[in-house]
Design a protein around this nucleic acid. Structure first.
Lengths: 188, 188
DNA sequence: GTCTATAATACGATAGAC
DNA sequence: GTCTATCGTATTATAGAC
């Protein structure tokens, strides 16, 4: 992938997380990426939606990789989820709560009116969910229950990020970490 | 409160939930409200932000009232939370997932750049959380633990709404309902 | 691959009449 | 209380040169 294209996608990923879809302009993406202004529609003929989809999917894969790595090196699913949520809390705090969930805002904004971006968000959330589910199954929890637990953990993380960003406080994530480890342990 | 003002606030509440802050234009609010176009800046001299704050706070109180009513008429906190989440699921499904969390999208969009709207969202979330906490305390759960449980329930609901809207499926809310009742029951 | 210029449209907000 | 007209400034996207 060319350098300009890569820089555009990286800038878009960050801006979409921090500001959401509608508040992020193409001019700002180009400006902050440092890429040439003329290359935007050369690399992304379909414009903003194509850039955003590319950025979302790249973010999704990066996050999924982080999830798998953290869960994989933990001694149990419960420990892994706790470490995962703590890591998210540190990341949000370090960004002064400008990071607001890698795709949450865009997922909410575009669910009704962009089939393309909505599908991307669906697939990304599904990948994350599967990663969580697999680690819980490895711990010996039955498939159906592991599935439900993975969904609850994912929802709790998403919601706790919303609250943490709103309050500029990672407390909600810490509460979620405690509750989710408790819930997973109780499933055995 | 005058009729035009009330209609503007009602339309704004609905549009902000369905579309978020940046995607909702003043012209659309006026148009769908049926209020006279000239009355917008008469009732809300500070413009879009003032309309939005008013709409958010009104929505917040309406939802808080619903929460208290549902929790209050339930035989236990766990049952109440289950009924609450099921009610939310039916509401989202009935709207074809256009309802996307009464304030979630706006909370995420405006957290960084509008002190005024951010504070409103903080206070609304806090009210909801207190309503949850109080009902859990009534069930005999200790204050600290009830506080954490309320935070987790709120986060799970917020996150499950994000996932439900994204997938156009109330499954995430059903999973959250099951898990949250389990978690609350385990606290006794 | 990259540039500039510009089309076409929408936005929030204000002024001043009535 | 309500109206219209308008200002200034964004936006996405395209055309055509280089």
């Amino acid at each position: 992938m060319s350098d300009s294209r890569r820089k555009i996608v990286e800038a878009a990923s960050r801006l979409l997380e921090e500001q959401g879809y509608h508040a992020t302009g193409l001019s700002q993406i180009v400006e902050e990426s440092g890429a040439p202004k003329g290359s935007l529609y050369y690399y992304f003929p379909d414009g903003k939606r194509e850039i955003s989809e590319t950025a979302l999917r790249e973010t999704g894969q990066r996050v999924e990789s982080n999830i798998r790595q953290i869960l994989g090196s933990a001694s149990s699913a419960a420990k892994g989820v706790q470490t995962l949520i703590e890591t998210i809390g540190r990341r949000m705090e370090a960004s002064n709560y400008q990071a607001g969930g890698p795709i949450t805002t865009v997922a909410l904004e575009t669910a009704p009116d962009s089939k393309r971006l909505n599908r991307a968000c669906q697939e990304i959330y599904n990948d994350w969910r599967v990663a969580l589910r697999n680690r819980i199954v490895e711990d010996g929890v039955g498939g159906d229950r592991a599935d439900r637990l993975a969904g609850t953990v994912l929802a709790s993380i998403e919601g706790a990020m919303v609250l943490a960003r709103t309050h500029q406080d990672r407390g909600p994530l810490e509460e979620a970490a405690t509750s989710m480890t408790e819930l997973i342990k109780a499933a055995h």
